[in-house]
Amino acid sequence: MIDLSMIEWGDIALATWETLVMTGVSLFFTVLIGLPLGILLFVTSQGQLLEQRALYRVLSFVANVLRSVPFLILLIVMIPVTVILIGTSLGVEGAIPPLVVATSPFFARLVENVLREVDRGVIEACQAMGIRTHRIIFGALLPEALPGLLAATTVTAITLISYAAMSGVIGGGGLGDLAIRFGYQRFQTEVMVITVALLVVLVQLIQYAGDRLVLHFSRK
C-alpha cells in the first residue's frame, strides 16, 4: 500500500521548480552554444556554403568526444571546472554547467542534421540570385529549417530533464535529488513513484508544447 501521508508536498513542489529551472537555464545556454556550433558544422561540411574541411573535422571531433563521455562521468569530471565557473558544484547552479556541456554538442549535431534536410535546391536558388552567404544562412536556411530546429529543441529539452534528474547523484537539486535522497536512500518508495510520475508529466507537457510549435511553423 502506498502511504501518501508522510510526503512533504512542499519539498516536492520545490524540487519540481528546481528541475524546471535547471532544464530551462541549461536549455537556454545549450541553444546559445549549440545552435551556432550546429550551423558552423553544417556550413563548413563538404559541399556546403562555406566548406572548410579542416575546421569541420576539428569541430566534429570535439563534438564526438563530448558526446561519447557518459553523462555520469562528465558530471564528476566537470566538478572542478564548475567550481571555478560558479563557485560551487552543488545544487541547482552546480548542475547547470555539466548539463550545458553534455547537451550542447548533442544539440549541435541535431541542428546540423536538420539543416542538412533543407532542400539544397533552395540554397542554390539563393546563390543564383547573387545573395550573400550570411543572408542566405540567416534569411533562408534557418527560417526554412525552423520547424526542424524546434523539434530538435524539444528533444534536447527532454534529454535535459532526464540528465537534470541524474545530476541529483552528485548533489544537484531538483526531482532527481529528491528521488535519490528519499526514494532510494531512505526507502520511501512513495517519493520515488511521485517524482517519476512528475517527470513523466513534465516530459509529456514539453513534447506536447514542442509538437504544437512545430506544427504552427510548418508550411509544408
Binding site: 532542400d119 535546391g121 533552395v122 542554390e124 536558388a125 543564383a128 508550411r219
Partner: peptide
Amino acid sequence: LRQRIGMIFQHFNLLNA
C-alpha cells in the same frame, strides 16, 4: 553578375517558409 541573371528550376526551389 548573378543579380543580372535570373534562373528558374525544375523543382521551383521556392522558400517554403
